[in-house]
Amino acid sequence: MKSRPEALGSLEHVVLLAVIRLGSNAYGVTVRRQIENATGRDISIGAVYATLSRLESKGLIESCTGEPTAERGGRAKRYFRMNAKGEDALRQTHDIIVKLSAGLKGLEFT
């Protein structure tokens, strides 16, 4: 029997959406910038990595190491991408939000 995917926490949700949006260019810097641009919040790189690490340990995303570059002091990037389990969790979370917000007076979602 297929187990029901778990719902995501709010930061997990935001980080996962940023990872999808960035596609093959999702790594710490770009994920942090994407969230900062969308939310207006100056989120710390540590908080982004803590969330990415939690998502990875839950098996919702995968990571791989990129090439080192000079502007990073010769350090390699770590790229993230969502997998099928992550997609299920995202869908589940979205369903919950849609169900809970449906029919609320004064709130109109597109």
């Binding site: 790189i45 990595y49 350090r75 990037k77």
Partner: peptide, 21 residues
Amino acid sequence: WLAPPSQREALLGDLAEEYSH
């Protein structure tokens, strides 16, 4: 020192890249 060993290099690199930008 704070960064987990498995993510240290990527974290330091990200910090350096954003700082340099």
